[in-house]
């Protein structure tokens, strides 16, 4: 789900250079088709459109149409079933006054902020450490990355057990001799949100490491050699030369991680269920509970639209700067 965004970057870089080549190619291929005519050629001309057609239709209906539909629902009084009694922006006003939504919004800031920051720090550090000609690098990388193959439900289940107050980590540390050690964040209203951060970081930081490692391997070695000859120390070289080179990686990692954070739903459901109370609700769980358990489809739609707005607010400047950067280059 996540690493998708990086692709946007790729596809944008490719568009421009290819359009030119493609056009000239199709100019060549067009002529024989036109001259011979006949039903075969007619079919050939329409086949590409016929093949892509279903995808075009499904995208327009199931992505754009549905976004608009949800937008419409968010302006109605819909409860257990959608209805179309329009009430303007009333649902959004209700949302802003909703205590549970404020908790969810604050939580996504705490969770998202910490999750992104810690993943980036761990990812960069681990990538740099792994880049020091380490023995068994391949195996270590495998270990860092396997959590990405797991479902967030599995991750949540595992961490729920590890963080279990009583039988989990607490007991382990007590068995090691620290009799008074307590670790009950999972059932602590104030601290439960941080258990989500721990589990999410465990699952995603290896992926960030892989991104940065690939980036580090792409840095031109001769620049580093030259700096070494000039007497620069390794930390300086990393800080002044290598890391600035990885700016694009930072950006794509940031986009991917914020995307994971905003979509976080499964992890919350499995690890805390939004509790204790609703102290670990995130917008995604708020939307689900509101729409499907409490039968407030209008309000749920409004919260979904807010989520979309946040994604767009992060994505559009990113895509814009990517596009502009490529055009200048």
């Amino acid at each position: 789900m996540a690493p998708v965004s990086k692709l946007a970057y790729r596809l944008l870089t490719m568009n421009t250079s290819n359009v030119v080549k493609q056009n000239s190619a199709s100019a060549v291929s067009d002529s024989p088709q036109v001259s011979t005519g006949g039903s075969f050629d007619f079919l050939q001309r329409w086949l590409p459109k016929l093949v892509l057609g279903p995808t075009i239709i499904t995208t327009l209906v199931f992505v754009y149409g549905y976004v608009i539909w949800t937008g419409v629902l968010s302006m109605t009084k819909s409860r257990f079933l959608p209805n179309y009694n329009f009430v303007g922006f009333l649902q959004y006003e209700k949302l802003m006054d909703n205590d549970r939504w404020s908790v969810a919004s604050l939580n996504i800031l705490i969770f998202g902020g910490l999750f992104i920051l810690i993943c980036l720090v761990i990812g960069v550090l681990m990538a740099i450490l792994l880049d020091q000609k380490i023995r068994a690098e391949g195996s270590i990388r495998t270990v860092f990355l396997y959590p990405m193959a797991l479902s967030f439900i599995v991750t949540g289940t595992a961490w729920k057990w590890i963080l279990n107050p009583g039988l989990g980590l607490e007991k382990l540390v007590r068995d090691m001799g620290f009799e008074n050690f307590t670790f009950d964040w999972l059932v602590d209203t104030e601290m439960a949100i941080y258990t989500l951060v721990i589990a999410a970081v465990w699952q995603s930081s290896g992926f960030v490491m892989a991104l940065f490692l690939a980036g580090l391997r792409g840095v031109d070695n001769s620049i580093v050699k030259a700096a070494e000859l000039d007497g620069a120390s390794m930390p300086t070289i990393y800080r002044r030369i290598i890391l600035p080179h990885l700016r694009p990686v930072f950006f794509s990692a940031f986009i991917i991680l914020s995307h994971i954070a905003i979509k976080s739903f499964d992890l919350v459901m499995a690890l805390t269920g939004g509790g204790p109370g609703y102290s670990t609700d995130l917008p995604a769980t708020f939307m689900y509970v509101t729409s499907f358990s409490r039968g407030q489809i209008g309000l749920g739609s409004a919260s979904a639209m807010m989520m979309l707005a946040v994604v767009l607010a992060i994505l559009i400047p990113y895509l814009y700067s990517e596009l502009r950067g490529k055009n200048n280059a």
């Binding site: 075009i56 995208t59 992505v63 976004v67 729409s291 994604v311 994505l315």
Partner: peptide, 28 residues
């Protein structure tokens, strides 16, 4: 086999990779 509009469509399609799915589940 690009045709007129296919690039624009591809750009539009990309958007589908980024949306939070919460925004489509009710209509679906």
């Amino acid at each position: 086999w690009k045709f007129r509009g296919s690039d624009i469509f591809f750009g539009l399609m990309l958007f589908g990779c980024f949306i939070p799915f919460q925004v489509v589940i009710l209509p679906m």
